[in-house]
């Protein structure tokens, strides 16, 4: 992890000798153990590393969807792309009013009503708590996933790109678009070690007012976590099962253990 600021290597000289024996512990965990001390405090190198990780996470929370680039990329799937917004008007409000992030604004409701034809799957792409995760991972996941859906003859609604959205906004969208299942790809809450984690939530028979136990979640989709191929396989399996059993959520979760890879 030293590549980002090579000069910090020089500071290793300042780390007290006595921490070296503890270094051996580091092979067992990625926790920040054996980081040494100056007096009773954390050495500067480790203090700045922590700050940098936090900065990445904070920047991800305040990142924005790259609508133009995403729209361009999504064209290749030959599906209409709808630009939608929740009832949230700014990020500060988004963070404090999850209820507003779960509902579409008036203009967006009008827009999807024009597209409501009976289909199988509505794919919703929302910024969530990390637009960075969406900007970097959503398209590349769909490159693998959409061909799986079309090969299995699932019909797809237009793709929805949602700003300031929470997971449950997919319920309104799936319902408005008259689709049997809604798949929401959304930026997850950034951790210190991963600011680019994408989550996928699927809900069978989406309608307003559903809660978390009706959904299945696949988490940590990113190059350093669950790969696009494995994520697409898991999602496809769960979607297929949801259609077979006409449900999603807790009852479907029992089978996902088969999928660990």
């Amino acid at each position: 992890m030293d590549y980002w600021m090579p000069w910090l290597n020089d500071m290793k000289r300042n780390i007290p000798q006595e921490i070296e024996p503890l270094k051996a512990l580091q092979e067992f965990t990625s926790a920040r153990i054996a980081i040494g001390r100056v007096g009773n405090s954390i050495p500067l190198k480790q203090s700045l590393e922590f700050k940098l990780a936090h900065a990445h996470a904070r920047d991800a929370v305040y990142s924005e969807l790259d609508i133009n680039n995403l729209s361009d990329l999504l064209k290749q799937f030959n599906l209409a792309v709808l630009h939608l917004q929740s009832m949230v008007s700014h990020r500060r409000q988004y963070l404090q009013r999850p209820d507003l992030g779960r509902k579409l604004n008036k203009a967006s409701i009008d827009l999807i009503n024009d597209y409501g034809v009976d289909t199988d799957i509505a794919i919703v792409i929302a910024d969530g708590l990390s637009a960075t995760a969406v900007n970097e991972n959503a398209y590349r996941l769909l490159q693998v996933l959409i061909p799986l859906f079309t090969a299995a003859n699932f019909s797809l609604t237009p793709l929805s790109l949602v700003e300031q959205g929470r997971v449950a906004i997919g319920d309104d969208i799936g319902y408005g678009l008259k689709s049997k299942l809604c798949l929401v790809l959304i930026g997850e809450r950034p951790g210190l070690s991963s600011a680019d984690s994408l989550g996928a939530y699927l809900t069978y028979n989406p309608k307003p007012g559903l809660t978390d136990e009706t959904r299945n979640c696949i988490s940590n989709i990113r190059p350093g976590g669950l790969s696009y191929n494995n994520a697409a396989k898991k999602i496809f399996y769960l979607v297929s099962e949801a259609f077979k059993r006409k449900l999603s959520g807790v009852a479907l979760k029992d089978n996902t253990g088969l999928l660990d890879s």
Binding site: T29, A31, R32, I33, I42, Q46, F50, L192, S193
Partner: peptide, 8 residues
């Protein structure tokens, strides 16, 4: 007390 204040 958490290593480096970061719960992984």
């Amino acid at each position: 007390g958490i290593p480096g204040a970061d719960d992984i």
